[in-house]
Amino acid sequence: MDKGSSIYIAGHRGLVGSAIAGRLRALGFANIITRTHKELDLLEQSAVSRFFETEKPEYVFLAAAKVGGIHANDSYPAEFIRDNLLIQTNVIDAAWRSGVRKLCFLGSSCIYPKLAPQPMKEEHLLTGPLEPTNEWYAVAKIAGIKMCQAYRRQYGFSAISLMPTNLYGPGDNFDLSNSHVLPALLRKFHEAKENGAHEVVVWGTGRPRREFLHVDDMADASVHLMQNYDEELIVNVGVGQDVTIAELAEHVRRAVGFEGRVVFDTSMPDGTPRKLLDVTRLTATGWQAKIPLDEGIRQTYSWYLENVAIVSEGSPADVLLAYKKALHESGREIS
């Protein structure tokens, strides 16, 4: 890409897409194409085809997806597999047909087997059964990887696939019923502190280990790899270190300033025992994560505090306005 390249970001209002847009603008890329869901429904093949035929972007970051935590994945399996398959199929095919020079597909570390060797290497893909609580999302993302590889092999389409670990950061989803573990814990601990509670209940045993990457690091890695990587092999994007859920809860407790105790509800599912990515292939390209976990959690909590009343109680329009205001103030403005 050069500074004048036309770049389409699918999912520019999401956690990762907005960070990628902000990173590109910070680097001087000005010709960024975006569409809201109202303007372009990525589930509609004909609409997506028309968009690509009209706009003809040179580069595409495919960050649009239906995402959520264990509860959301387990509760809405049909939506998770259907919507993600449709989004990525429509975008990848239309991108190739319209002459896009390069596409970056964002997957997820949940593509790996539940009991994959740790840390998980890219070659562990499809070597064992998936974690049942998110297999619908994982199957869709695996299909996206294989579609990128198939289009590269048959049509010579330059498409790369990145597998990020657990992401977090400003603008995250803090809904307790369908968010990921880190933002859910931030909200739980904050509300417990505000209500004067003596304890916070965390799902599971606290023993599973997870790796967490700040979304601004993910955006930086995405742009770096779009510029410096062009192979069929997928690339893990993470920090190469993990913590237990119990340790994560302690990180969050300190950041929030909650002084009560943490209780683990062992009747709730743990999910995959461990999800640590091997980032050897990534570091070989000259990139590594820069934002420490404690610093990232404090930054995310500061964002939450500035927007907590609207996030918790406001209308969807209010939430979006607050989100855009916060992104603008942090240099990650969206259209």
Rank of each mutant, 00 (worst) to 15 (best):
E231N: 13
P119K: 03
I70S: 00
E313D: 15
Y8A: 02
P57M: 09
A221Y: 02
A47T: 04
R25E: 14
A78D: 14
G107A: 08
V16I: 15
I20H: 00
I9P: 02
R281I: 10
L248K: 01
H37Y: 13
H328C: 07
A143E: 11
S108D: 13
F105I: 04
A317I: 09
V256W: 02
A150E: 12
E122S: 12
T272Y: 05
D270Y: 09
K325R: 14
T285D: 03
L282N: 01
K188G: 03
E44R: 13
M226S: 00
R82G: 02
E135L: 14
A63C: 15
A219Y: 00
L40E: 11
L320E: 14
G69Y: 02
A140V: 06
Y151A: 04
P132I: 08
A246K: 11
L213E: 10
N228F: 11
P119S: 11
D230I: 04
E53S: 11
V262F: 08
K121N: 09
G107P: 13
Y323D: 12
V243S: 03
K38G: 07
I297W: 02
F51E: 04
R101V: 09
L24P: 01
A192P: 03
V223H: 00
R23A: 03
L24E: 02
D270I: 09
P77R: 00
L167Q: 05
V202Q: 01
S330G: 08
L321I: 04
V256E: 02
M1H: 03
H37D: 07
I234V: 15
G14R: 00
R209D: 06
D242T: 05
N236M: 06
L103S: 01
R253S: 07
S109Q: 13
D93Q: 11
I20C: 02
G238E: 08
T266E: 15
W287K: 01
G99T: 03
T272E: 15
R274W: 08
L185D: 02
V252E: 02
G260E: 11
D175F: 04
G11D: 08
S312L: 14
V48N: 00
L248D: 05
S330D: 11
D278H: 12
L186I: 14
A184W: 01
T300K: 00
H224E: 12
A326W: 07
K114C: 13
N236L: 08
G314R: 00
L185Q: 04
G69I: 05
P273E: 08
R50V: 06
L185Y: 10
E306N: 14
M218Y: 09
E259C: 12
D278S: 13
N90F: 07
S302R: 15
Q227D: 12
A19Y: 10
E329L: 10
D217W: 07
E247Y: 11
G204A: 07
M147S: 11
P113H: 13
N134W: 15
R13M: 12
R101T: 05
H37P: 04
T300S: 14
T244Q: 06
Y155T: 01
F80C: 05
S18I: 05
